[in-house]
Design a protein around this nucleic acid. Sequence first.
DNA 1: TTGTATGCGTTATCAG
DNA 2: CTGATAACGCATACAA
Lengths: 340, 340
Amino acid sequence: MVTIPGRRKRATIHDVAAEAGVSRGTVSRVVNNEPYVSAEARLAIEAAIAKVGYVPNTAARNLVMQRSQAVGLIVHEPHSLFLEDPNIGEILLGANSALSLADYQMVSLVIESERDTERVARYLSGGFVDGVVVVSAREQDPITRVIERLDLPAAFVGHPQDLRDLPYVGINNRAAARAITERLIGTGRRRIGMIAAALDRDSGADRLAGFTDALGDRFDPALVAPVPLYTYADGRDGMRALLAREPLIDGVFAASDVIAAGALNALREDGRSVPGDVGIVGFDDSAWALRCQPLLSTVRQPANGLGQRAAESVLSQLRGEAPELGGILLDTQIVWRDSA
Amino acid sequence: MVTIPGRRKRATIHDVAAEAGVSRGTVSRVVNNEPYVSAEARLAIEAAIAKVGYVPNTAARNLVMQRSQAVGLIVHEPHSLFLEDPNIGEILLGANSALSLADYQMVSLVIESERDTERVARYLSGGFVDGVVVVSAREQDPITRVIERLDLPAAFVGHPQDLRDLPYVGINNRAAARAITERLIGTGRRRIGMIAAALDRDSGADRLAGFTDALGDRFDPALVAPVPLYTYADGRDGMRALLAREPLIDGVFAASDVIAAGALNALREDGRSVPGDVGIVGFDDSAWALRCQPLLSTVRQPANGLGQRAAESVLSQLRGEAPELGGILLDTQIVWRDSA
DNA sequence: TTGTATGCGTTATCAG
DNA sequence: CTGATAACGCATACAA
């Protein structure tokens, strides 16, 4: 018979009990350090545990406890965005720190294909996680339906229209966009355009709405360049489109810092100075803002806090508390630097 | 008695069996669509499943099957790097695609604190994953020890000195660094420096070694600026240091594209033109390379492939195959653009 | 303080 | 083809 290179069998509570000459119940008590166990028994058991290299089997524990002590973080984004959008990383880190504090394991699940969607759905149904934080769900997202069906404690970062009744945390994109646009107007620019990204998402649509609000009568639809994603390339393309349509443009609201960075590239290409010829503002206050030349005026968005609060919402639901149905809105603030 | 807002109890195989009027064994067969089950039984069971909303409990299945059909991806990096290093995202996506193809769930675990380390160690021990891909392990990493102790099928991206006998996949950093430095020398530069990042990692140390190899007699330690991490800020700082030490510098090998981007910023600050006054080359060929002005000459590193191959290695070990102990080295190539 | 027995939801073995 | 029944490893109520 061939010896499979497989691993040695893991020690169980049974082995420990045998080694220590006690019953499994007592071992279990020591492992979960419960009271009512004699000092000598405890000592013997601890020695036995070390000797056989025992480590509890969580699958078994989960089965009997009916929980996994883990929370999923679902990222549903196309490759490019996942790699470029600094907010996603921040959200992830924020959620991890909150979960970590409560001794929950964050497991992040990335969905990039149809196949992934199904697998993740199965995963969620499988009791691997006690709850879930969803980043950037779309409308009619199958994952959302799975979550509802299982009624798994969940919190969304951002809120697609079709899940108004699920807990979410976000920012007031519209008000923030309006505020920074007004500030840009205040600098005396006459022809202000917007590079509007991700209009199929609440963040994108709301930022455009805020822009429109601020401009009022002076709003000119021709000065809005819609692009699909929050990416550098889309920012550059959007700016080129704007430049082609309105050569006299002297102000730009970019839907995000990455977009602004791309736009800056296009502007430089075209020989325009910033903020001399055109003033530009972004959104996010991500690492990009400080990396641009000149430094970007933008809206600070607490991405880390979003992840954290979403995780905390899940945690509180896990404790049996009712979620805040209205959603949680975090504050933003304008950071004025040199680009406008 | 208070009604806890808890979720309704999930249906089990038992409920389905009762509903369909068959035994649990038969239901199990249908669920895992095994042969030897009559058409009528199958039909009845499928109806029952739909009716009671049955979904298999994976904890129970794992317990008896002794596997989880999931593979962990461990990212052990400080916040800043996690957010800035595009390679990490690529590796993650590459691993996910390989795993996804084999119908394994990738769960990524990020470690940012001591506490996280312990929790992840417990998680790994808990049977939540069948194997693990480790990105950027350090020397003496506690996680590495846990993996060895459990002898969990694993593959490392990059290879710290102290795990030469564990499977890994990487690139030949030294040869690649040497090659691009030689190319830079070939452009006629006389005073060439290096911004050397992450010297405590194999990638960082090897790139410096390759640089030294290429320079030979002409190597001048004063022209090496060591910085801790692959970040934009460190690139800028490193370049400033170099400029201060050797104003006549006319060539720079930046340890990564991000570093080069930061360096470019410092160069611009100092009023130097690129590639006119100084030629600069990077490493990675990440999105940064195309975002720099001028476009960066760099080394293309197949980050996505690294993740993919590492995942495949784990998968093959899961099939019982012996890992390639020597490690797998992927090819790199020089991409010559405008910065030198 | 400790041991025993039972159940968690599946899969798997074996008689029918 | 199908139905009992025994694991899987652990927690826990109950008995001792």
